[in-house]
Amino acid sequence: MPNLFELQTYLEPLSLRLVQRGLLAAIVVAIICGVMGTFVVVRGLAFLGDALGHAVFPGVVIAYLLNLNLLAGGLVAGLITALAISLVGRTGQVRESTAIGIFYTVAFAFGALLLSRSRSAPRALSELLIGNVLAVRPEDLQLTLLIGGVVLLLVWAFYKELVLVSFDPQQAAALGRNVPVLNGLLFTLLALTIVASLQTVGNVLVVALLVIPAATARLLVGPLPAVMGLAALLGSLCTFAGVYISYYADIASGGAIVLCACGVFFCVLIVRSARQRLHLGVAG
């Protein structure tokens, strides 16, 4: 058990290249997840985020089997699934949530079937599912930084359009904005974020990093940019803590990060409702 009050406890892991790289990648991921997660929470897209996280799987497997870039494969699969979901939703015959549930499970089944042909199946599968911060290679870090930069740049450039289409699509249409294109942009950004997160938190837990920090931030502050900033900050802090826990306790980094974020969320929630009750008590 490491001594929590000794500086060496915190510095020791940082001396390792492996940890430096992993931590940097994880924090970039936490920041873009905080920004994109705010859109997810505001628009109620948690299920879509979750589904995209799973749907990138067959793309990653195909890329893995063909020795192509894993993340590019994942991005293509994620975008195809998002497109299929929105097309089926538009026929009006099937609820969108049902379509999401069917498409991602089928996509995942397809990926699992493909992977079963490969010998290294279980290990590769679990690596993708739950991520491993310490397995980030230099070229992965470069790609994560690149994706992170692109996502933040696009959000900054299209900020008012994205907010408008999230808050009031009818108004956006009335103002002459192309709503399907803007929604497509939002989903693409979401898919990019998910792909960037694959390595660090894995594809089943990425939705946690999208939803939990943003939901926590939303309990604490009102304005949208403040929610984004706070979510990015909270996500980074939890990532930091999670990586250390994962280093010392030797558990999956993704799980540790998410459990930290969860702890913060429930603390905030409990304190807030206690204060509300106090207020009501005083007022009544």
Binding site: G44, A46, L205, I212, G255, V258
Partner: peptide, 16 residues
């Protein structure tokens, strides 16, 4: 959001 938080939390717990 409630669903998103809860299910990812329980899944992370399971993984850990």
């Amino acid at each position: 959001t409630a669903i998103g938080v809860l299910f990812s939390a329980s899944f992370a717990l399971g993984i850990v």
